[in-house]
């Protein structure tokens, strides 16, 4: 097995782990983390795809994907914080 194939398979496994946690994890924060892990899995597959030919296009795709992931995570966390704020204000348990 070549090195890049090993990394490709690890990327797919990360995607699977993230998928499981996204569905099964009980808390929002864990779900947000799980989506991020899925994303990292896909990025790893892309980087491993680029490796044998040192292809810059997947690298550019990963950089774009990272920015998108940061933005999406920030949005998710802000929604989470606002829900908690509102629930703390109204006195109900989250």
């Amino acid at each position: 097995m070549t090195q890049d194939m090993l990394y490709s398979i690890c990327g797919l496994l990360l995607f699977g782990i993230g998928l499981y946690r996204l569905i099964a994890a009980p808390r929002i924060l864990l779900k947000v983390l799980a989506v991020n892990i899925q994303g990292v899995g896909v990025f790893m597959l892309l980087v491993a795809t680029a490796y044998p030919h040192s292809d810059p296009v997947p690298h550019a795709m990963v950089l774009t994907g990272i920015v998108v992931a940061v933005a999406a995570t920030a949005l998710a966390l802000s929604l989470y914080c606002r829900i908690h704020e509102l629930q703390a204000g109204s006195g109900t348990e989250p």
């Binding site: 996204l22 999406a72 949005l75």
Partner: peptide
């Protein structure tokens, strides 16, 4: 919105 976001991201 949060549920929509998680489903959309997946």
């Amino acid at each position: 919105a949060l549920r929509y976001l998680l489903a959309g991201l997946l």
